[in-house]
Amino acid sequence: MPRPADLRFRATTAFQRRIVNPVLRRLPLQTLLETTGRVSGLPRPTPVGGRRVGDAFWLVSEFGGRSQYVRNIAADPRVRVRIRGRWHTGTARLLPDDDPVARLRTLPRLNSAAVRSLGTNLLTVRVDLDR
C-alpha cells in the first residue's frame, strides 16, 4: 500500500503538470525556471515561487530530488529564470544543508504556504545569476 507521502506526491505532481503549470507558463509575469531536459535536451520551463536577492534567485522545491526540475539541475546546472517578464541566465545550486523551512519564511507567502503544506521533502535551490 502506498504511503501518504507518495500519494500526496503523485496527486500534487499530476495536478500541477496537467492543470496548473500549463496555465501559469502562459502568464507574462509568472516566474519561470527553465532547465534543460536531461534526456531530451529540450528547454523545460517550470513555474516557481521564489525571490531575487542581489545576484541570486532563491526557491524551495517541495519534493526535493523527486522534482523533475531538480533532477534536471543535477544533470546540468545551467538554467534561465524569468523574473517579472525578463529572462536571466545562471547556475543553479542544490543546497541540502540549508534550512528550507527557514528559507520559506523569506520567500513570497502564498507560494511558501503551498510548498509547506504540500511538500514532503523540501530542498533549497539557489540560482547564481550571471551579470
Score class of each variant (00 low, 15 high):
residue 46 T to N: 14
residue 12 T to R: 10
residue 67 S to G: 02
residue 4 P to V: 02
residue 87 W to V: 13
residue 5 A to D: 12
residue 109 R to T: 12
residue 128 D to C: 07
residue 19 I to R: 14
residue 21 N to R: 08
residue 17 R to Y: 01
residue 44 R to I: 06
residue 34 E to I: 15
residue 54 G to Y: 07
residue 18 R to V: 01
residue 26 R to Q: 12
residue 76 D to T: 08
residue 79 V to W: 09
residue 78 R to M: 08
residue 78 R to K: 13
residue 54 G to D: 04
residue 96 P to M: 06
residue 38 R to E: 03
residue 27 L to S: 06
residue 61 S to I: 00
residue 75 A to P: 03
residue 96 P to V: 05
residue 2 P to L: 13
residue 72 N to H: 13
residue 72 N to W: 04
residue 109 R to W: 11
residue 123 L to M: 08
residue 8 R to Y: 00
residue 53 V to P: 00
residue 37 G to N: 11
residue 73 I to S: 07
residue 37 G to Y: 08
residue 101 V to Y: 03
residue 46 T to R: 11
residue 62 E to W: 07
residue 28 P to G: 09
residue 62 E to I: 00
residue 20 V to F: 08
residue 122 L to F: 04
residue 47 P to F: 11
residue 57 F to N: 09
residue 50 G to D: 04
residue 45 P to W: 07
residue 121 N to P: 00
residue 22 P to W: 02
residue 124 T to K: 07
residue 53 V to S: 12
residue 91 T to Y: 02
residue 64 G to V: 01
residue 63 F to V: 03
residue 73 I to W: 05
residue 10 R to G: 10
residue 38 R to Q: 14
residue 57 F to G: 08
residue 62 E to F: 00
residue 57 F to W: 04
residue 41 G to N: 13
residue 3 R to Y: 02
residue 13 T to A: 07
residue 67 S to F: 00
residue 59 L to Q: 06
residue 56 A to P: 00
residue 65 G to W: 07
residue 73 I to C: 12
residue 60 V to Y: 07
residue 97 D to H: 12
residue 19 I to L: 15
residue 30 Q to I: 01
residue 45 P to Y: 10
residue 16 Q to A: 11
residue 90 G to S: 10
residue 81 V to T: 06
residue 95 L to G: 01
residue 110 L to G: 10
residue 62 E to G: 12
residue 69 Y to W: 15
residue 71 R to H: 04
residue 44 R to T: 09
residue 63 F to I: 04
residue 121 N to K: 13
residue 100 P to T: 02
residue 102 A to I: 01
residue 34 E to M: 15
residue 51 R to G: 03
residue 111 N to R: 10
